[in-house]
C-alpha cells in the first residue's frame, strides 16, 4: 500500500472539459508515488477523456493538472514524460520488441550501447528477454502487454496512465500482470492511474478507487472500502449495491 510520506506525483484541481454535449465536470483527485488509483465507470462515463486530458491530448477548459507540483496544462504532450498504455497496447508493428523498448531512449539520444544494456535489464525484469527479437504481431496478448509496460517505464516516467489495459486478456494472464504491475509500481515509484469498468480488477489491483459517472467523479475511496463507502444512490446502483428504481 502507498505510504502517505511518498511524493505527490499527480494532482487534478477542478479539471473541466466539454466535448460536444459531454462535460467532464470539476474533477479533483491526486496520486502519490507508488500508488495505483483506479477510476471505475460505465462506457461513455468520460474515463478515457480524463486520461487523455492528463496525458495532454486535450487541454482542460478550467482547472489545473499538476505533475510534481507543476501545472502541465500548457506543456506539449511529447514533453510531459507521462506513460500511456492503450487497451490494444499500441506497440509499433514495424519494430521488434527490443526496438519498441528502446524507442523512447533513442529519442533522448542515449548511446546505443547504453540503450541495449537498459533494454536487456528491463526485459529481464519483465520476463521478456526471449522475445526481444520478435515483432509485436507474433506475440501473445500478455507478452504484448509486458512489452508495452516495459516500454513506458524505460523512459523513467513518474506517471503511468492505463486505459483498460487488461480487458482483452484471459484471467490467468491478468492475474500475472496485476502482480507485475503492483511490483513495478513500488519498484519504480511511479504513480498509476488506471481506468476500468471491472469492479474486481479495480479492487484487486489498486490502492484507491474513484467512481466516474456522467463526467462527474463521485469520490475516491480506499479499494477495500469500495462497497462500504457512503456513495450516492446512482453510484450505489452502478456498484450493484442497490437495485435501480423501477419507473
Amino acid at each position: 500500500m502507498c505510504e502517505h510520506a511518498t511524493e505527490e506525483i499527480l494532482r487534478l484541481e477542478d479539471v473541466t472539459l466539454r466535448r460536444g454535449s459531454f462535460l467532464l465536470n470539476q474533477i479533483r483527485f491526486s496520486v502519490r508515488a507508488g500508488e495505483i488509483v483506479a477510476i471505475l465507470g460505465r462506457t461513455g462515463a468520460g474515463k478515457t477523456l480524463l486520461l487523455e486530458t492528463i496525458a495532454g491530448f486535450c487541454r482542460p477548459e478550467a482547472g489545473r493538472v499538476l505533475c510534481r507540483g507543476t501545472n502541465i496544462c500548457r506543456i506539449p504532450l511529447h514533453q510531459r514524460n507521462i506513460g500511456y498504455l492503450y487497451q490494444d497496447f499500441s506497440l509499433f508493428p514495424h519494430m521488434i520488441a527490443a526496438a519498441n523498448l528502446g524507442y523512447g531512449l533513442k529519442l533522448r539520444r542515449v548511446p546505443k550501447g547504453e540503450i541495449q544494456k537498459r533494454v536487456e535489464t528491463m526485459a529481464d525484469r519483465f520476463g521478456i528477454r526471449s522475445i526481444l527479437d520478435q515483432y509485436p504481431g507474433t506475440l501473445s496478448g500478455g507478452e504484448q502487454q509486458r512489452v508495452a509496460l516495459a516500454r513506458a517505464l524505460m523512459v523513467r516516467t513518474p506517471l503511468l496512465l492505463l486505459d483498460e489495459p487488461f480487458s482483452a486478456l484471459d484471467p490467468a494472464t491478468k492475474e500475472g500482470l496485476y502482480r507485475l504491475l503492483r511490483e513495478i509500481c513500488q519498484e519504480f515509484q511511479c504513480a498509476v492511474v488506471l481506468v476500468t469498468h471491472d469492479f474486481r480488477e479495480a479492487a484487486a489491483l489498486s490502492h484507491r478507487v474513484g467512481v466516474l459517472l456522467g463526467g462527474t467523479l463521485r469520490g475516491v475511496v480506499p479499494a477495500q472500502e469500495l462497497f462500504d463507502a457512503p456513495w450516492d444512490e446512482e453510484t450505489r446502483c452502478f456498484l450493484g449495491l442497490e437495485a435501480p428504481e423501477k419507473e
Binding site: 496525458a55 511529447h78 506513460g83 500511456y84 509499433f92 524507442y103 529519442l107 533522448r108 513506458a152 523512459v155
Partner: peptide
C-alpha cells in the same frame, strides 16, 4: 493508420514531424 500509435509515440517524447 491507428492514431493511438502516434499518440503512444508522442507520450514517449517526440514531435509530430519525427
Amino acid at each position: 493508420f491507428d492514431p493511438d500509435l502516434a499518440h503512444a509515440a508522442q507520450t514517449l517524447g517526440r514531435s509530430n514531424t519525427w
